[in-house]
């Protein structure tokens, strides 16, 4: 069974909600980012999303935009992000890794080569923000041939007709973007999301991860009731920003690193079922 399937299955049997943590690949530099990536599972992260930096991230708010810029300024390429995955997989065969980014760097890298290299590195899923179902065929099929999941997004604007289009061909899990807006914006209204997710549940058995606007352990706990997992990005990346400029000196014990990992620990702690 694939790693993503296994994780969501055990979440269900343990009656627990998962934490999906987002970090930008290569932020603030590849070395520090790799160290951080490797430390995440020990803090209770169930799935890790790694951003593929892009110069023009049209769906991201300032925090993730800056993270991408830091990574690019430090010279991070898509190949470097894949190498982070290779390095991670040397010690960890269980935690699913999902790459998230935009179409242009993937197309420039070569769609088939990207899919092949994802599979070889140990990537489990890919989210390409600017490839809606109408335009994702090439990437989806290439990834599918390598048994890597193309993760699709559902948003508050996805009506019944749209839902059908999205679910047709969706794999892995569904990423529910809980607000109409960009990453790092205000939190969604709980009730609105709940009603929509209920409609989605009626149409699919795929696990649902809820993301966008979830920043604190409280947010995570509140929103976790709605789906199978919550995605936290901007509030983690905001703390990673403090590691910037410390290249080469950052070890696991550095206070800035501890602050990132403690925040993640608090998030996963908030999702533990009440004793």
């Amino acid at each position: 069974m694939k790693r993503l399937g296994k994780v969501f299955e055990s979440l269900r049997t343990e009656n627990r909600k998962g934490l999906i943590a987002f970090i930008m690949g290569g932020d603030p530099d590849v070395e520090t980012s790799t160290a951080l990536l490797k430390a995440l599972p020990s803090r209770g992260v169930d799935v890790i999303e790694i951003g593929m930096p892009f110069s023009d991230p049209m769906a991201d708010g300032p925090v993730i935009q800056m993270a991408g810029q830091r990574a690019l300024e430090a010279g991070c390429t898509l190949r470097n992000v894949l190498d982070m995955v290779v390095s991670f997989r040397k010690d960890n065969q269980d935690t699913p890794l999902v790459l998230m980014g935009y179409a242009n760097p993937v197309y420039r890298y070569g769609v088939d080569k990207f899919a092949l290299d994802c599979a070889e590195a140990g990537v489990d899923g890919v989210i390409i923000v600017d490839l809606p179902p109408e335009e994702d065929q090439a990437v989806r099929e290439a990834l599918g041939n390598q048994f890597v999941d193309m993760i699709r997004l559902i948003t508050p604007t996805s009506d019944a007709g749209r839902l059908e289009t999205i679910l047709d061909g969706a794999t892995g899990f569904l990423y529910y973007v809980s607000i109409t807006g960009i990453t790092g914006a205000a939190k969604a209204k709980h009730d609105k999301v709940a009603a929509h997710i209920e409609k989605i549940r009626a149409k699919t058995d795929l696990p649902i991860a809820v993301g966008f606007g979830i920043k604190t352990p409280n947010d995570a706990q509140e929103m976790s009731a709605l789906g199978d997992a919550v995605v936290v990005g901007s509030s983690i990346v905001e703390k990673i920003a403090h590691l910037s400029g410390k290249s080469g000196k950052v070890d696991q014990g550095a206070p800035e690193m501890t602050a990132v990992l403690d925040h993640i620990g608090a998030l996963s702690g908030a999702l533990k079922p009440a004793a």
Binding site: V129, D130, P132, E134, E135, R152, L153, T155, T157, D159
Partner: peptide, 20 residues
Amino acid sequence: ERGHFGPYGGRFVAETLMPL
């Protein structure tokens, strides 16, 4: 009908914008 001029054009936007 999908907005393609040969291999160009199309609708490469975030899902939120697709219905609009």
